[in-house]
């Protein structure tokens, strides 16, 4: 396990993650506060955000491939559980919205938050299981 290399991968991932968050904020609030809604700048901001998002995923894959096999197993199990729950909860949430059984509209942000929390909890549980 090369700690220096891991640190390098972590720094790359952090850099691309924060860049993605920043460009997402620019693409979201730019048309509202800085330029016209239907400006070419909006398209540019969205395309840049998408490109940086792909780079973030690639940085995550590099870090993942650097993990040893136990860590990979822990992450894969957590991802599998998170994916399954996200599909089930996401569709249930969408159905509740379609049938007007919830007051507010279904928001993708809810699903993203749910995925983050589920992934963190399952990582903690799996780390405990394999310790």
């Amino acid at each position: 396990m090369n700690k220096k290399e891991r640190k390098k991968h972590l720094i790359h991932l952090a850099f691309w993650t924060w860049s993605w968050v920043l460009t997402l904020a620019i693409a979201t609030f730019g048309p509202e506060f800085f330029w016209e809604e239907k400006s070419a700048l909006t398209i540019v901001a969205i395309v840049v955000n998408l490109a940086i998002g792909i780079l973030m995923v690639l940085a995550n894959r590099k870090l993942f491939n650097h993990y040893d096999e136990l860590e990979r197993k822990i992450h894969l199990e957590s991802m599998g559980l998170t994916l399954g729950l996200a599909v089930i909860i996401g569709l249930t949430y969408s159905l509740l919205d379609q049938k007007n059984l919830i007051h507010s509209d279904a928001e993708i942000g809810f699903l993203v938050g749910f995925i983050s929390i589920t992934y963190m909890i399952s990582l903690m549980v799996n780390r405990k299981r394999y310790s």
Binding site: M1, D68, E69, L70
Partner: peptide, 26 residues
């Protein structure tokens, strides 16, 4: 041992405690 085998200490601990089955390579 973990340094010599190029694996995390947690993996060695998990194998010793019988909570993890290593791959053939490991």
């Amino acid at each position: 041992l973990s340094v010599k085998a190029e694996v995390s200490r947690k993996s060695i601990n998990a194998i010793e405690n019988g909570v993890y089955v290593p791959s053939t390579v490991l």
